[in-house]
């Protein structure tokens, strides 16, 4: 899938969780991606994390770092 679309979606999700405590927000974003994205999308965004400039917001990036800890989604 088109990575720029994944980035856009991840950023949009992050923005909507961007209230209150940061740790909770990061966990909520990672949980949202886990529950609603396909494996291929999760793998795609995790792989993109290692590409240097990601276009991801700081919060979205933190959530995807969290997501990448799950081996099933490792690049």
């Amino acid at each position: 899938m088109n990575v720029s679309k994944l980035v856009r979606m991840a950023n949009q999700i992050a923005q909507n969780f961007d209230v209150g405590e940061r740790d909770k927000a990061v966990a909520a974003i990672a949980d949202h991606l886990t529950r609603y994205w396909t494996v291929e999308m999760k793998k795609g965004i995790v792989a993109h994390l290692n590409q240097g400039t990601t276009g991801l917001s700081e919060l979205a990036e933190a959530a995807i770092v969290e997501l990448s800890k799950n081996e099933a989604y490792a690049a």
Partner: peptide
Amino acid sequence: AEPGMRIPNMFDAAVAGQ
């Protein structure tokens, strides 16, 4: 155990040839 594609995901994946 993993969610499948939503309609817009299907369209994006189709355009990408997957």
